[in-house]
């Protein structure tokens, strides 16, 4: 065999040996241990620190908030959804408290095609306009459930005191004028609250304020019990010129508190069904103008036009004030 061939073969053999040596030398530790990969990479990946810590991490310091949150409807929305990941907190400082709740809450609650029916959704413009959600809602207990004051008045005693009211609100609590509200069958808790507000000055009215200031606390309770006990069946309203159908569409935004047909599900809120249209329109306008103060009503009335208000008032005044079948009795 010629010398160059022999040398070439030797060179190839050396090259092959070097390649094998290189393979052995450069194969990293733990490769092939469990398969065709570097086994040590598994514990390396597993060792990464979690960023989101779960509510269990928040509980020890924020027990009160966690308790409130976990007892209410947002209990499936963990702390870190709104406050961001808790890794490094509290050592590295506070976690953010979202201020632009209108942007945050609507991520889930803006009415949008594709969202399941079960998800509570709002038409943002109609529901609250530019109002921030936290104006009315507590994010840790978002459902607005006004605590209904227990009314423990004596209806008979109330009846005696009611003579002064009859001039405007009618002897049977059914007002003769379109601009004064019916009181018959209204929720007692609401009546007590509103009368209390006139008495304390939280709400002002040329006629109502002096009358309410003359009442004792017991009188307020008694009157509320009396009017609540009256039948509202006599309340009949003439059909108005406004568009009831348009009002019905708008009324969906009121349904959560006032019921679909204006029969409130919670005694803390007023029934609207069968109420005087003129009164309803005035009240809404007063809320819109800020003359009557209520954070929830201020928000929802903001986006309403005069025509909207007329339509809504027409719709609610046309409804029957009897409790909706199957609905919760007030």
């Amino acid at each position: 065999m010629p010398r160059h061939i022999a040398r070439l073969i030797a060179l190839i053999v050396v090259f092959g040996a070097l390649a094998l040596l290189a393979k052995w030398y450069f194969t990293v530790d733990s490769f092939y241990e469990y398969g065709h990969y570097r086994a040590n990479s598994v514990p390396e990946i597993a060792a990464q620190a979690p960023v989101f810590q779960t509510p269990r991490y928040c509980q020890p310091c924020h027990a009160e908030r966690v308790a409130l949150w976990s007892a209410n409807s947002h209990k499936t929305v963990i702390c870190e959804v709104c406050h961001g990941p808790a890794q490094g907190h509290p050592a590295n400082g506070k976690l953010p408290i979202p201020t632009d709740t209108k942007k945050l809450c609507t991520l889930c609650h803006e009415a949008m095609p594709g969202r399941p029916r079960a998800q509570p959704q709002i038409d943002v413009a109609r529901h609250a306009g530019d109002q921030q959600c936290i104006a009315c809602h507590n994010p840790h207990a978002p459902k607005i459930v006004a605590a209904a004051a227990q009314v423990a008045g004596d209806a008979a005693a109330g009846k005696k005191r009611a003579g002064a009211c009859a001039g405007c609100h009618g002897a049977q609590g059914v007002s003769a004028s379109d601009t004064w509200p019916n009181l018959a069958g209204q929720n007692a808790a609401y009546l007590a609250k509103i009368l209390g507000a006139y008495k304390s000055g939280d709400q002002k009215d040329m006629v109502m304020t002096p009358m309410a200031q003359g009442l004792g606390d017991a009188d307020v309770q008694n009157l509320a019990a009396h009017f609540a006990g009256l039948s509202c069946a006599a309340a009949r309203n003439e059909s108005s010129a406004a568009d009831v159908a348009a009002g019905k569409a708008l009324a969906k935004n009121c349904a959560a508190c006032h019921g679909e047909t204006g029969v409130a599900t919670n005694p803390a809120w007023p029934k609207l069904a069968g109420q005087k249209a003129g009164y309803l329109a005035n009240a809404l306008k007063a809320f819109r103008a800020g003359l009557r103060r209520d954070p929830t009503m201020a928000g929802v009335s903001r986006g309403l036009s005069d025509a909207d208000i007329a339509n809504l008032a027409a719709y609610f005044s046309a409804q029957s004030c009897a409790p909706a079948p199957g609905g919760r009795a007030p």
Partner: peptide, 9 residues
């Protein structure tokens, strides 16, 4: 490159 061989026989 010759690998030390100039054999062209």
């Amino acid at each position: 490159l010759t690998l030390g061989s100039d054999d062209l026989s």
